[in-house]
Design a protein around this nucleic acid. Structure first.
Length: 429
DNA sequence: GTAGGGGTAGGT
DNA sequence: ACCTACCCCTAC
């Protein structure tokens, strides 16, 4: 039973967007031990927690806790601390501090408290324990932030910089690399082995290996890179394909050698067919169950404020035609997402026909861009709330209209970045 | 992506 | 007529 628990826990943890399952709670409920398998599960859980907090748009001291926890787990695994981990920790710590820099002066508000709590206490503990997270970059920021306490020019400079964006990018990069290192889930490895075994039997029975190979290859023509097939993981099922290998520290992959060796003996372009089938079936069941449990979930996920991954996905979106995007009305019904292409419609989501997991809705910075360049949007006066939001936004992000809009998608749902720019121009005139 | 100039529509 | 928001263009 425990093995099944582990597999299911792993599958659930690796799923993206499952707000009803907290990985930490799941693990503590199942009381796993300290075996290498469980260590991987714990790492997955921490990664999922970080990912969930990014999805919620939250970067706080809880994120720092998670990053510290991740380091400890890697220490237990005797693996090397990655640069992306150090950078993500550094910039998250800075973001946690800078968020308290909203007053104009360092003596107002809670900046001093944050500096004390994060840099004097928390990071001091890390230094004493010899943590690898204490990088040169971190020490430099520590010095700068302490200078900012006295030097108002430095304070303003840091206050006006966009730390949050960098922190999100680095956390995203960390997640990408860490999921990559974790590799295939246990279920997928088992399915690969089973598939290999079955294939071997088929070959024996038929005495015609070419026959099997050809039939298997047909379904996986999109996978050109046969040697990397074992790196498919459950995340890929959900369209969150990890980048393939380049420059990734693979020290942690050592514990996979045992299972990988089976494949190395017989590298086949079609090896991933088995795990894809298992993953697909599991996905279908989960979708069906989830559809029954909570049919309202999808609706909520369509709300702009709950747009799932836009705060996480910092990769550039495909360029949209200038002023030729879909109109506001059309967008609300059919989000203009590349991920949607070729997928089932919303109506089929809870069914078994063409099921798919919720697709992250990419942030469209300017949903108000017009389809018909002749039509003019109706004039809408700025509300005091919008003006206030704009003032706050400029304080926090400077004249980065896109960031201001992204930070407050609800308030600025009806405004483009250009609107923000124009309004600000009017305000300062 | 943003700034800034300048034009225009629509409301008062 | 005036004001404000929206739009277009160009430059960086």
């Amino acid at each position: 039973m425990e093995v099944i628990d582990k597999w299911v826990a792993e599958f659930i943890i690796r799923r993206q967007q499952n707000p009803r399952v907290s990985p930490s709670n799941l693990l503590s409920a199942l009381r796993f031990g300290d075996s290498p398998d469980c260590l991987k599960l714990k790492i997955s859980s921490v990664l999922r927690d970080i990912s969930n907090s990014l999805i919620r748009g939250t970067i706080d001291e809880g994120t720092l806790d998670l990053l510290e926890m991740l380091e400890k787990l890697h220490l237990q695994e005797h693996s090397v601390l990655m640069e992306s981990h150090k950078s993500a920790y550094c910039w998250t710590a800075v973001e946690c501090t800078v968020r308290f820099m909203w007053p104009l002066s360092s003596s107002d508000g809670f900046f001093t408290d944050a500096l004390e709590r994060i840099w004097t206490k928390r990071i001091e503990v890390l230094k004493e324990s010899g943590s690898g997270l204490v990088s040169n970059e971190l020490l430099k920021w520590e010095a700068d932030l302490k200078i900012a306490l006295e030097d108002s020019e430095m304070y303003q400079r840091i206050r006006e910089s966009n730390i949050r964006y960098t922190a999100i990018s680095l956390l995203n990069q960390l997640l990408k690399e860490q999921w990559e290192i974790l590799g295939s889930s246990a279920l997928e490895l088992v399915s690969q082995r089973t598939f290999l075994k079955r294939k071997a039997q088929n070959v024996d029975n038929r005495g015609d290996p070419n026959h099997v190979d050809e039939s298997m290859r047909r379904g996986t023509s999109e996978e050109e890179d046969g040697n990397e097939n074992n790196r498919e993981n459950a995340n890929d099922v959900e369209g969150v394909r990890c980048l393939e290998g380049d420059g990734i520290d693979k020290v942690n992959a050592a514990d996979e050698e045992e299972t990988m060796s089976a494949q190395e003996e017989e590298p086949e372009p079609s090896l991933d067919k088995g795990d894809k089938t298992v993953a697909r079936e599991l996905k279908e069941f989960l979708l069906e169950i989830q559809g029954h449990i909570d049919s309202s979930t999808r609706k909520e996920e369509q709300e702009p404020n709950n747009g799932i991954d836009y705060s996480v996905d910092v990769t550039p979106q495909p360029a949209r035609g200038n002023r030729t995007g879909t109109s506001r009305q059309v967008r609300n019904e059919t989000p203009d997402s590349a991920n949607e292409k070729g997928s089932g419609s919303q109506g089929t989501w809870s069914g078994r026909v063409g099921p798919r997991l919720p697709t992250p809705v990419p942030l469209n910075v300017s949903p108000l861009k017009k389809e018909n360049s002749n039509a003019r949007r109706p004039k809408k006066f700025w509300t005091p709330e919008e003006v206030e939001g704009l003032r706050e936004g400029v304080k926090e992000y400077g004249r980065s209209w896109k960031d201001i809009k992204n930070a407050n998608p609800t308030v600025f749902a009806e405004r483009t970045e250009v609107d923000l720019k124009d309004k600000w121009r009017n305000l300062v005139r």
